[in-house]
Simulated assay, not measured.
Amino acid sequence: MFREMRRKKQELSLEDSVAILNKATSGVFAVSGDNDYPYAVPLSFVYDNSRIYFHCAKNGHKLDAIARNEKVSFCVIDYDNVVPEKYTTYFRSVIVFGKARILDNHEEKMKAIEKLAAKYSPNHEEGRRREIDDQFKQLCLVEIEIERMTGKEAIELVRMKKK
């Protein structure tokens, strides 16, 4: 169903890929947009138990695209170092493929926003609670259930690890 990675030596372990998702503060969400044009947008997110959660407006391009086609992808760049003298880039990234859905169950929505808020404001529990209570009715939360996740890094980084 999903393509295998061509350069297997550069593939990151599942544990490394999950660590990157847990560390990253933004990623790029991609859908099949209007008139079959790809639509990719950067956003804040949280990873939890083979799922990615993010919040957005209650209407717009992302939600229209999800309603037409639940299949999506999401990409995070962990490391990006251009090495001009070697005509290359040392990189590390993760891409996921999955199915997106809008959370409409109150309990699911609350769990997702609490995880998201805790990631970005870990030391402000009281403030998080107030903000969630104030904004909850207006929030739209989306869940991506991950079906395939791959991480990859530059061959130069693989070689450096071996030394």
Rank of each mutant, 00 (worst) to 15 (best):
M1A: 14
M5L: 11
K8I: 08
K8S: 12
K9T: 05
Q10H: 02
E11L: 06
L12I: 07
S13H: 06
S13P: 05
L14F: 05
V18A: 10
A19I: 02
A19Y: 03
A19E: 09
L21Y: 04
L21Q: 02
K23P: 00
T25N: 11
V28W: 01
F29E: 03
F29N: 06
A30D: 00
S32A: 12
S32H: 06
G33Q: 05
Y37K: 07
Y37I: 00
Y39H: 13
L43C: 11
L43Q: 06
V46Y: 08
V46C: 07
N49I: 00
N49Q: 13
N49E: 14
S50P: 00
S50T: 00
R51N: 14
I52R: 06
I52H: 01
F54C: 05
C56F: 07
N59W: 02
G60R: 10
D64W: 01
A65E: 05
A67N: 13
E70H: 13
K71Y: 13
V72N: 04
C75R: 04
V76I: 14
V76H: 04
V76S: 06
I77S: 09
I77Q: 08
D80V: 08
Y87K: 01
T88N: 09
Y90I: 09
Y90R: 09
R92F: 11
S93L: 12
V96S: 10
F97R: 09
F97Y: 15
G98K: 14
G98E: 15
K99R: 14
R101N: 15
E107I: 08
E108C: 09
E108V: 04
E108F: 09
K111S: 08
I113L: 03
I113E: 00
A117S: 15
K119E: 06
S121W: 13
N123M: 08
N123P: 00
R128G: 08
R128Q: 10
R129A: 13
R130Q: 14
D134N: 12
F136S: 08
Q138K: 10
L139Q: 01
I144D: 09
E145P: 00
E145C: 04
I146P: 03
E147R: 08
M149I: 14
M149G: 03
M149A: 10
T150E: 12
G151S: 03
G151W: 03
K152I: 14
K152G: 04
E153M: 15
E153G: 02
I155W: 10
I155A: 15
I155F: 14
I155V: 11
E156T: 12
L157I: 06
R159H: 11
R159G: 00
M160C: 05
M160S: 13
K162E: 15
K163C: 05
K163N: 07
K163H: 15
